[in-house]
Simulated assay, not measured.
Amino acid sequence: MSISITQMTRRFGQTEVLRGVDLTVGKGELVALLGPSGSGKTTLLRIISGLDWPDSGQLRVAGEDWLSKRAEQRRTGFVFQHYALFPHMKVRDNIAFGLTVLPREQRPSAAQIRTKVEELLQFLQIPQLADRYPSELSGGQRQRVALGRALAIDPEVLLLDEPFGALDAQVRRDLRRWLREVHEATGTTTIFVTHDQEEAFELADRVVVMGAGQIEQIGRPEEIYDNPATPFTASFLGLTVEIRVTLQAGRAVAPGIDASALALRDLPDGPATLFLRPSDIAPVADPEGAFIVTESLSTGALHRLRLEGPGNCIIEAELPRRAGAPGLAAGTKVRLRPETGQIFPGAARLTSRAA
């Protein structure tokens, strides 16, 4: 089912949690809402599900006004971060729960419910867990059961709120691949919330970057990663080094910066900010360089340099450790050659920083 959200607002007291959100999700699409805590992601998800209501705006699914429907009328499947399984029910009963509480005229027969549960147990690759209780399952297994319960009602829309947030890194990676396979097999229109950039980029057809209650950028994962449209998106996606520059005929100019590798920008001359990832900076030893290495550390896979330059600019650069950092010990003067980056008009903060 296609979803259309228009000028959605939500306020809690004096705090604007959603500020005029417009979003369209295509039928069968998997979309990630990506952003930091407090950006409005979960509030938007709850409004779609019927667990919360906006102060203004429209929500239409397949052309129908969903704000006129109660939560139980919307036929959404909702998967929470902490599973929310019923501890006193076995796995098969947890999966069947949504079907057993449907209105009588919509409720399948007991035999049909058993058949549906068996199909889902096989589909989710957990038939051996059918008669266990949630306390007897691992985190990854519980999340599969939670997804099975959401899918049992054949939802028009599947909503997932930080579905892998409580799991360790390896299990998260395994379940991400599995969830993508489940989505492709079911074709259900799906929206999931995450603050994990890697998770959003690996899973989603499109990524919606949210910040402070509004949408900063929408696009395919590679589009957003390579071309962040706003300073907020750039910083959130790892371009955490900010350097004051001056734009002259589309070229960034600053003491100690060799910006010749950067593409010319169609921006007006004047003050601007160059956003870089630490791994996009190539420090080159230069006795006349305007930056100085103040710290040189190895983190295993990476060689990390701390650099100080004009205007109280403090940054970090990262180089592959096996490539080495010849001649870049503490005290070395260097010039910086950014390999790629984003430029936005306006001044940077006083101190640039890397994550």
Rank of each mutant, 00 (worst) to 15 (best):
A62W: 02
P326I: 13
L124A: 10
L262K: 01
V209S: 04
L120Q: 04
S235W: 13
D226V: 00
T24Q: 14
D280A: 15
T340H: 12
G238C: 10
F232H: 05
F291K: 02
F344W: 04
A263K: 09
E288M: 10
A249C: 02
R353C: 01
D93M: 06
A254R: 02
R220S: 06
S260C: 09
A166P: 08
A355T: 12
P338A: 07
E118D: 15
L137D: 11
A259H: 01
R75C: 08
M210R: 04
Q7A: 15
G324T: 11
L336M: 03
F123L: 11
V334W: 01
E318L: 11
G98K: 02
V145F: 03
G300A: 09
A323G: 14
K41Q: 04
Q128N: 11
P255W: 04
I243W: 02
N227M: 03
E64R: 15
R177E: 12
A330R: 12
P103C: 06
E288T: 15
T299A: 13
R349E: 14
V117H: 01
S135Q: 14
L274M: 09
P326N: 10
P310D: 05
V101N: 07
D258Y: 04
A254D: 06
Q217D: 07
G20R: 05
W178N: 04
I47P: 03
A347D: 14
I257P: 01
L159G: 05
R176P: 10
L307P: 01
I47M: 15
R144L: 10
P36Q: 12
P287S: 12
S4I: 10
E308N: 08
P310G: 03
L274F: 08
A329S: 15
A169P: 02
G40I: 06
V253S: 06
V157A: 05
I257T: 00
L45P: 06
R107W: 08
G250N: 05
L85H: 04
K333N: 12
A62R: 09
V101G: 02
G250Y: 02
K116Y: 02
L121K: 01
N227Y: 07
A348Q: 08
G311S: 01
P163A: 10
A347N: 14
